[in-house]
Amino acid sequence: MSLFKSNSSQTELAVDVPQAKPADSSMKTFLKRLKKDKWLYLLLIPGLLYFIVFKYAPMWGLIIAFQDYSPFKGVLGSEWVGFDHFKNFFQNPDFFRLLRNTFILAVLDLVFFFPAPIILALLLNELRINLYKRTVQTLIYVPHFMSWVIIASITYIFFTTSGGVANEIVAHFYGKEINFLSSPDWFRPLIMGQIIWKETGWGTVIFLAALATVDQEQYEAAIVDGAGRFRRLWHVTLPAVRSTIIVLLILRLGNFLDTGFQQIFLMTNSLNRDVADVFDTYVYFVGITQGAFSYSTAVGLFKSVVGIILVLGANKLAKKMGQEGIF
Protein backbone atom coordinates (compact mmCIF):
# COMPACT_ATOMS: atom_id res chain seq x y z
CA MET A 1 0.00 0.00 0.00
CA SER A 2 2.73 2.39 0.85
CA LEU A 3 3.79 2.20 -2.78
CA PHE A 4 0.75 4.02 -3.99
CA LYS A 5 0.71 6.47 -1.18
CA SER A 6 4.23 7.72 -1.60
CA ASN A 7 4.03 7.88 -5.35
CA SER A 8 0.85 9.87 -5.40
CA SER A 9 2.26 12.66 -3.29
CA GLN A 10 3.66 14.08 -6.49
CA THR A 11 0.67 13.81 -8.69
CA GLU A 12 -1.74 14.97 -6.06
CA LEU A 13 -0.04 18.31 -6.13
CA ALA A 14 -1.64 19.16 -9.38
CA VAL A 15 -5.05 18.47 -8.00
CA ASP A 16 -4.37 19.98 -4.61
CA VAL A 17 -3.39 23.38 -5.69
CA PRO A 18 -6.45 24.59 -7.54
CA GLN A 19 -8.44 23.58 -4.48
CA ALA A 20 -6.12 25.58 -2.29
CA LYS A 21 -6.80 28.68 -4.28
CA PRO A 22 -10.35 29.53 -3.19
CA ALA A 23 -9.39 28.92 0.41
CA ASP A 24 -6.68 31.53 0.09
CA SER A 25 -8.75 34.11 -1.59
CA SER A 26 -10.24 35.87 1.31
CA MET A 27 -9.67 39.61 0.92
CA LYS A 28 -7.06 39.89 3.59
CA THR A 29 -4.77 37.17 2.38
CA PHE A 30 -5.22 38.33 -1.18
CA LEU A 31 -3.88 41.79 -0.39
CA LYS A 32 -1.09 40.26 1.59
CA ARG A 33 -0.18 38.13 -1.42
CA LEU A 34 -0.22 41.05 -3.77
CA LYS A 35 2.21 42.90 -1.57
CA LYS A 36 4.48 39.90 -1.38
CA ASP A 37 4.19 39.33 -5.11
CA LYS A 38 6.03 42.51 -5.89
CA TRP A 39 9.20 40.44 -5.82
CA LEU A 40 7.72 38.02 -8.27
CA TYR A 41 6.83 40.83 -10.63
CA LEU A 42 10.34 42.16 -10.31
CA LEU A 43 11.66 38.76 -11.39
CA LEU A 44 9.25 38.81 -14.28
CA ILE A 45 10.47 42.11 -15.69
CA PRO A 46 13.58 41.02 -17.63
CA GLY A 47 11.66 38.21 -19.30
CA LEU A 48 8.72 40.41 -20.15
CA LEU A 49 11.03 43.01 -21.63
CA TYR A 50 12.61 40.31 -23.74
CA PHE A 51 9.27 39.19 -25.12
CA ILE A 52 8.13 42.72 -25.82
CA VAL A 53 11.32 43.82 -27.53
CA PHE A 54 12.40 40.76 -29.47
CA LYS A 55 9.14 38.91 -30.04
CA TYR A 56 6.31 41.43 -30.08
CA ALA A 57 8.00 44.53 -31.47
CA PRO A 58 8.85 42.74 -34.74
CA MET A 59 5.36 41.23 -34.90
CA TRP A 60 4.22 43.93 -37.32
CA GLY A 61 6.05 41.89 -39.93
CA LEU A 62 3.04 39.59 -40.00
CA ILE A 63 0.89 42.13 -41.78
CA ILE A 64 2.90 41.71 -44.96
CA ALA A 65 0.89 38.50 -45.43
CA PHE A 66 -1.92 40.82 -46.52
CA GLN A 67 0.27 42.94 -48.78
CA ASP A 68 2.43 42.68 -51.86
CA TYR A 69 5.46 43.45 -49.80
CA SER A 70 8.63 44.73 -51.37
CA PRO A 71 11.55 45.39 -49.01
CA PHE A 72 12.44 48.59 -50.80
CA LYS A 73 8.96 50.05 -50.42
CA GLY A 74 8.58 48.82 -46.87
CA VAL A 75 5.38 47.95 -45.06
CA LEU A 76 4.00 51.46 -45.34
CA GLY A 77 4.56 51.72 -49.07
CA SER A 78 3.55 48.23 -50.13
CA GLU A 79 0.23 47.52 -51.69
CA TRP A 80 -2.58 45.89 -49.70
CA VAL A 81 -4.06 42.78 -51.24
CA GLY A 82 -6.24 41.43 -48.44
CA PHE A 83 -6.53 37.65 -48.42
CA ASP A 84 -5.23 37.14 -51.95
CA HIS A 85 -2.16 35.18 -50.86
CA PHE A 86 -4.25 32.87 -48.73
CA LYS A 87 -6.66 32.32 -51.61
CA ASN A 88 -3.78 31.52 -53.94
CA PHE A 89 -2.37 29.11 -51.43
CA PHE A 90 -5.60 27.23 -50.77
CA GLN A 91 -6.54 27.15 -54.44
CA ASN A 92 -3.15 25.90 -55.48
CA PRO A 93 -3.65 22.56 -57.26
CA ASP A 94 -0.85 21.17 -55.10
CA PHE A 95 -2.38 22.28 -51.83
CA PHE A 96 -3.92 18.95 -50.91
CA ARG A 97 -0.84 17.00 -51.87
CA LEU A 98 1.29 19.30 -49.70
CA LEU A 99 -1.18 19.06 -46.86
CA ARG A 100 -1.33 15.28 -47.13
CA ASN A 101 2.45 14.85 -47.20
CA THR A 102 3.00 17.28 -44.37
CA PHE A 103 0.23 15.76 -42.29
CA ILE A 104 1.44 12.18 -42.77
CA LEU A 105 5.00 13.09 -41.83
CA ALA A 106 3.75 15.02 -38.80
CA VAL A 107 1.67 12.07 -37.60
CA LEU A 108 4.50 9.61 -38.19
CA ASP A 109 6.77 11.94 -36.28
CA LEU A 110 4.35 11.99 -33.36
CA VAL A 111 3.88 8.23 -33.37
CA PHE A 112 7.43 7.05 -33.99
CA PHE A 113 9.82 9.82 -33.13
CA PHE A 114 8.13 11.41 -30.15
CA PRO A 115 8.11 8.31 -27.91
CA ALA A 116 11.61 7.23 -28.93
CA PRO A 117 13.55 9.42 -26.47
CA ILE A 118 11.18 8.48 -23.65
CA ILE A 119 11.71 4.78 -24.22
CA LEU A 120 15.45 5.23 -24.59
CA ALA A 121 15.63 7.32 -21.41
CA LEU A 122 13.68 4.69 -19.48
CA LEU A 123 16.01 1.97 -20.74
CA LEU A 124 19.04 4.04 -19.83
CA ASN A 125 17.53 4.58 -16.43
CA GLU A 126 17.48 0.83 -15.88
CA LEU A 127 21.19 0.43 -16.59
CA ARG A 128 23.04 -0.56 -13.44
CA ILE A 129 26.60 0.29 -14.35
CA ASN A 130 27.00 4.02 -14.08
CA LEU A 131 30.09 4.39 -16.23
CA TYR A 132 28.52 2.33 -19.00
CA LYS A 133 25.36 4.35 -18.75
CA ARG A 134 27.23 7.63 -19.09
CA THR A 135 29.24 6.34 -22.00
CA VAL A 136 26.14 5.27 -23.90
CA GLN A 137 24.51 8.59 -23.10
CA THR A 138 27.43 10.47 -24.53
CA LEU A 139 27.54 8.36 -27.69
CA ILE A 140 23.88 8.73 -28.51
CA TYR A 141 24.06 12.46 -27.99
CA VAL A 142 26.62 13.01 -30.76
CA PRO A 143 24.39 12.73 -33.89
CA HIS A 144 22.47 15.86 -32.86
CA PHE A 145 25.54 17.87 -33.83
CA MET A 146 25.87 16.62 -37.36
CA SER A 147 24.44 18.88 -40.02
CA TRP A 148 21.82 17.56 -42.43
CA VAL A 149 24.16 18.05 -45.36
CA ILE A 150 26.58 15.55 -43.85
CA ILE A 151 23.81 13.18 -42.83
CA ALA A 152 22.28 13.23 -46.30
CA SER A 153 25.68 12.50 -47.75
CA ILE A 154 26.24 9.57 -45.38
CA THR A 155 22.73 8.28 -46.05
CA TYR A 156 23.56 8.24 -49.74
CA ILE A 157 26.83 6.40 -49.10
CA PHE A 158 25.00 3.75 -47.08
CA PHE A 159 21.86 3.26 -49.11
CA THR A 160 22.85 3.73 -52.73
CA THR A 161 22.25 0.80 -55.02
CA SER A 162 25.75 1.30 -56.41
CA GLY A 163 27.65 -0.39 -53.63
CA GLY A 164 26.01 1.10 -50.54
CA VAL A 165 26.90 -0.82 -47.38
CA ALA A 166 23.32 -1.13 -46.15
CA ASN A 167 22.10 -2.24 -49.53
CA GLU A 168 24.75 -4.91 -49.78
CA ILE A 169 23.56 -6.32 -46.48
CA VAL A 170 19.97 -6.19 -47.72
CA ALA A 171 20.98 -7.95 -50.92
CA HIS A 172 22.72 -10.63 -48.91
CA PHE A 173 19.64 -11.53 -46.90
CA TYR A 174 16.81 -10.51 -49.16
CA GLY A 175 18.30 -11.56 -52.46
CA LYS A 176 18.10 -8.22 -54.20
CA GLU A 177 18.78 -4.59 -53.56
CA ILE A 178 16.09 -2.12 -52.58
CA ASN A 179 15.85 1.35 -54.05
CA PHE A 180 15.61 3.05 -50.67
CA LEU A 181 16.55 6.44 -52.02
CA SER A 182 14.32 6.62 -55.06
CA SER A 183 11.28 4.62 -54.03
CA PRO A 184 8.38 6.75 -52.81
CA ASP A 185 7.43 3.94 -50.42
CA TRP A 186 10.74 4.22 -48.62
CA PHE A 187 10.87 7.99 -48.40
CA ARG A 188 8.92 8.32 -45.16
CA PRO A 189 10.64 5.46 -43.35
CA LEU A 190 13.97 6.97 -44.40
CA ILE A 191 13.04 10.40 -43.11
CA MET A 192 11.80 8.90 -39.83
CA GLY A 193 14.92 6.79 -39.56
CA GLN A 194 17.14 9.81 -40.03
CA ILE A 195 15.33 11.93 -37.49
CA ILE A 196 15.19 9.13 -34.95
CA TRP A 197 18.87 8.49 -35.46
CA LYS A 198 19.79 12.16 -35.19
CA GLU A 199 17.60 13.42 -32.39
CA THR A 200 16.59 10.56 -30.11
CA GLY A 201 19.73 10.68 -28.01
CA TRP A 202 19.49 14.41 -27.66
CA GLY A 203 15.82 14.08 -26.75
CA THR A 204 16.65 11.81 -23.82
CA VAL A 205 18.48 14.62 -22.03
CA ILE A 206 15.32 16.27 -20.84
CA PHE A 207 13.74 13.01 -19.70
CA LEU A 208 16.88 11.96 -17.88
CA ALA A 209 16.71 15.27 -16.06
CA ALA A 210 13.10 14.59 -15.19
CA LEU A 211 13.97 11.09 -14.03
CA ALA A 212 16.59 12.59 -11.78
CA THR A 213 13.78 14.09 -9.76
CA VAL A 214 12.35 10.71 -8.78
CA ASP A 215 12.46 10.21 -5.07
CA GLN A 216 14.69 7.27 -4.21
CA GLU A 217 12.55 6.54 -1.17
CA GLN A 218 9.70 5.69 -3.47
CA TYR A 219 11.79 3.01 -5.12
CA GLU A 220 12.78 1.65 -1.77
CA ALA A 221 9.19 1.64 -0.60
CA ALA A 222 8.16 -0.11 -3.79
CA ILE A 223 10.79 -2.78 -3.26
CA VAL A 224 9.65 -3.32 0.29
CA ASP A 225 6.17 -3.85 -1.13
CA GLY A 226 7.61 -6.48 -3.43
CA ALA A 227 6.94 -4.59 -6.63
CA GLY A 228 8.77 -6.03 -9.63
CA ARG A 229 10.81 -4.22 -12.22
CA PHE A 230 7.90 -3.45 -14.44
CA ARG A 231 5.59 -2.31 -11.65
CA ARG A 232 8.23 0.06 -10.35
CA LEU A 233 8.62 1.48 -13.83
CA TRP A 234 4.89 1.87 -14.19
CA HIS A 235 4.07 3.23 -10.76
CA VAL A 236 7.13 5.21 -9.81
CA THR A 237 9.21 6.15 -12.82
CA LEU A 238 6.56 6.97 -15.38
CA PRO A 239 4.47 9.23 -13.15
CA ALA A 240 7.60 11.22 -12.46
CA VAL A 241 8.13 12.09 -16.11
CA ARG A 242 4.47 12.29 -17.00
CA SER A 243 4.15 16.05 -16.67
CA THR A 244 7.25 16.52 -18.81
CA ILE A 245 5.87 14.21 -21.46
CA ILE A 246 2.56 16.04 -21.54
CA VAL A 247 4.17 19.45 -21.76
CA LEU A 248 6.47 18.35 -24.55
CA LEU A 249 3.61 16.74 -26.40
CA ILE A 250 1.49 19.87 -26.25
CA LEU A 251 4.39 22.03 -27.34
CA ARG A 252 5.16 19.67 -30.20
CA LEU A 253 1.60 20.11 -31.44
CA GLY A 254 2.28 23.82 -31.74
CA ASN A 255 4.79 23.03 -34.46
CA PHE A 256 2.70 20.23 -35.85
CA LEU A 257 3.03 21.27 -39.48
CA ASP A 258 6.73 22.03 -39.24
CA THR A 259 8.89 19.48 -40.97
CA GLY A 260 12.63 19.63 -41.13
CA PHE A 261 13.06 21.68 -44.28
CA GLN A 262 16.71 20.99 -44.91
CA GLN A 263 16.41 17.30 -44.26
CA ILE A 264 13.50 16.84 -46.64
CA PHE A 265 14.97 19.11 -49.25
CA LEU A 266 18.17 17.07 -49.34
CA MET A 267 16.35 13.74 -49.53
CA THR A 268 13.94 14.78 -52.28
CA ASN A 269 14.53 13.70 -55.86
CA SER A 270 12.56 13.44 -59.05
CA LEU A 271 11.39 9.94 -58.28
CA ASN A 272 10.02 10.53 -54.80
CA ARG A 273 8.84 14.11 -55.04
CA ASP A 274 5.18 13.11 -55.02
CA VAL A 275 5.44 12.09 -51.39
CA ALA A 276 8.28 14.41 -50.42
CA ASP A 277 6.87 17.87 -51.15
CA VAL A 278 5.76 19.52 -47.93
CA PHE A 279 4.73 23.05 -46.95
CA ASP A 280 8.23 23.92 -45.83
CA THR A 281 9.99 22.95 -49.05
CA TYR A 282 7.25 24.64 -51.05
CA VAL A 283 7.59 27.85 -49.08
CA TYR A 284 11.32 27.70 -49.51
CA PHE A 285 11.08 27.68 -53.28
CA VAL A 286 8.31 30.19 -53.55
CA GLY A 287 9.33 32.38 -50.67
CA ILE A 288 13.08 32.40 -50.63
CA THR A 289 14.22 31.64 -54.14
CA GLN A 290 11.42 33.63 -55.73
CA GLY A 291 11.48 36.26 -53.01
CA ALA A 292 7.72 36.16 -52.42
CA PHE A 293 7.88 37.46 -48.85
CA SER A 294 4.19 38.05 -48.52
CA TYR A 295 3.19 34.68 -49.86
CA SER A 296 5.54 32.77 -47.62
CA THR A 297 4.43 34.82 -44.63
CA ALA A 298 0.83 33.93 -45.46
CA VAL A 299 1.69 30.22 -45.55
CA GLY A 300 3.58 30.58 -42.27
CA LEU A 301 0.59 32.30 -40.74
CA PHE A 302 -1.64 29.44 -41.80
CA LYS A 303 0.71 26.96 -40.13
CA SER A 304 0.80 29.09 -37.00
CA VAL A 305 -2.97 29.25 -36.76
CA VAL A 306 -3.19 25.48 -37.06
CA GLY A 307 -0.48 25.20 -34.40
CA ILE A 308 -2.16 27.48 -31.93
CA ILE A 309 -5.51 25.75 -32.33
CA LEU A 310 -3.86 22.41 -31.64
CA VAL A 311 -1.98 23.72 -28.62
CA LEU A 312 -5.00 25.34 -27.04
CA GLY A 313 -7.12 22.27 -27.78
CA ALA A 314 -4.56 19.86 -26.37
CA ASN A 315 -4.04 22.04 -23.34
CA LYS A 316 -7.73 22.07 -22.60
CA LEU A 317 -7.97 18.34 -23.09
CA ALA A 318 -5.05 17.77 -20.75
CA LYS A 319 -6.72 19.86 -18.09
CA LYS A 320 -9.98 18.02 -18.50
CA MET A 321 -8.13 14.79 -17.92
CA GLY A 322 -6.79 16.13 -14.66
CA GLN A 323 -3.35 17.04 -15.94
CA GLU A 324 -1.74 20.42 -15.66
CA GLY A 325 -1.26 21.38 -19.26
CA ILE A 326 1.15 24.12 -20.04
CA PHE A 327 -0.77 27.03 -18.59
Binding site: A152, S153, Y156, T160, S162, N269, S270
Partner: peptide, 12 residues
Amino acid sequence: INEDFAVMDPQK
Protein backbone atom coordinates in the same frame (compact mmCIF):
# COMPACT_ATOMS: atom_id res chain seq x y z
CA ILE B 1 25.46 5.74 -66.97
CA ASN B 2 25.34 5.09 -63.25
CA GLU B 3 22.17 3.34 -62.18
CA ASP B 4 21.63 5.58 -59.13
CA PHE B 5 22.00 8.91 -60.94
CA ALA B 6 18.51 10.11 -59.96
CA VAL B 7 19.39 10.04 -56.28
CA MET B 8 23.13 10.60 -56.35
CA ASP B 9 24.42 13.19 -53.91
CA PRO B 10 25.73 15.99 -56.17
CA GLN B 11 28.71 16.39 -53.87
CA LYS B 12 29.76 12.86 -54.77
